Simulated scan of single mutants.
Amino acid sequence: MNERRAIILEAVLKEFIRSGRPVSSGQLFEEYDFDIKPAAIRLELSELADEGYLSKLYHSAGRVPTDRGYEFFVERILSHELDFIREPRLLSKLAEEFFSGDRLEFLDQIAESLHVLSIGYDLEGENVYKKGLDELLRYEDWEAIEDVVRVVRDIENIDEHLEAVLHDIYNEGSDKPRVFVGSNPILKNDSLSVILDSFDDFLILLVGPKRMNYRTNLGFLSKIKQHINTINHERRNTN
């Protein structure tokens, strides 16, 4: 994909994640300086739809991202250095909770800050911790009450298959966080996205709708991880 088309696709994702509404060529022309005319933007959107990155709703002139579009967006984010500015006091508090072993409070702070469901899995003790289901259910993306019930049941039963799946993923040995859009090996529900990262022997999953704020969530996890690794390094040097 050429860079101009990639930038336009990234703009569509940003706008859709922000508003949840289909994105039109006119909107992009007004809000972004691509240095091309609206007709050229429409052509690019049409090409992106043909390539499977966008889809068009029958009742709207705008476009919405497909799972492939989200995956491309996430790859763009991960290809750059993740940065997230947050109050140092919050980072210190999270690190304190992590090292004290207060996993539920640690996850609760993350869920509250990012408005996602946060799940933790202790590889040594094989314990599962969950916080923030209320944050997940606050999103306006649910089309019917049946969708909410399905998600709640999925989360309630996650302990049954989490152990085997996470051990397999962890053993693949990637330093970068893993992002699953829609279909994933962790949840049965394909309307959600999952971000998975490891903090030593503690795995963290962030669960949210497909239009979660990937840049913020990935940057937040990266910042916490850097802070915890720095403290670990300092502790080793003083012992």
Rank of each mutant, 00 (worst) to 15 (best):
N2R: 08
R5V: 08
E10G: 06
A11Q: 05
V12R: 04
K14E: 06
S19G: 04
G20P: 08
R21W: 07
R21H: 10
P22V: 04
V23M: 03
S25P: 02
G26S: 11
Q27L: 06
L28W: 05
Y32F: 08
K37T: 13
P38H: 02
A39F: 05
E44S: 12
S46P: 01
E47D: 14
E47I: 14
L54A: 07
K56Y: 04
K56T: 11
Y58I: 15
S60V: 07
G62E: 00
R63F: 10
P65C: 08
P65K: 04
F73L: 06
I77R: 04
L78A: 06
S79V: 14
E81D: 11
E81V: 12
L82Q: 05
F84N: 09
I85D: 14
P88S: 07
L91T: 11
K93A: 15
L94I: 13
F99V: 12
S100K: 14
S100T: 11
G101H: 06
G101A: 07
D102I: 13
R103F: 12
L104W: 13
F106W: 08
L107M: 13
Q109E: 15
I110W: 04
A111W: 03
E124K: 15
N127D: 15
K130R: 14
E140T: 15
D141E: 15
D141W: 13
I145C: 00
D147W: 08
D147L: 11
V149N: 11
R150M: 13
V152A: 10
D154K: 05
I155G: 02
I155T: 11
N157I: 10
N157Q: 13
I158A: 08
D159S: 11
H161E: 12
E163D: 13
I169N: 02
I169C: 03
Y170I: 04
K176L: 09
V179E: 01
P185Y: 05
I195R: 03
S198W: 00
F199P: 10
D200A: 12
D201C: 08
D201E: 14
D201K: 12
F202S: 02
L205P: 03
G208N: 01
Y214C: 08
Y214N: 00
R215V: 13
T216G: 02
N217G: 09
L218W: 06
L218R: 01
G219E: 07
F220K: 05
K223I: 09
H227Q: 08
I228M: 02
N232T: 12
R235Q: 01
R235A: 09
R236K: 10
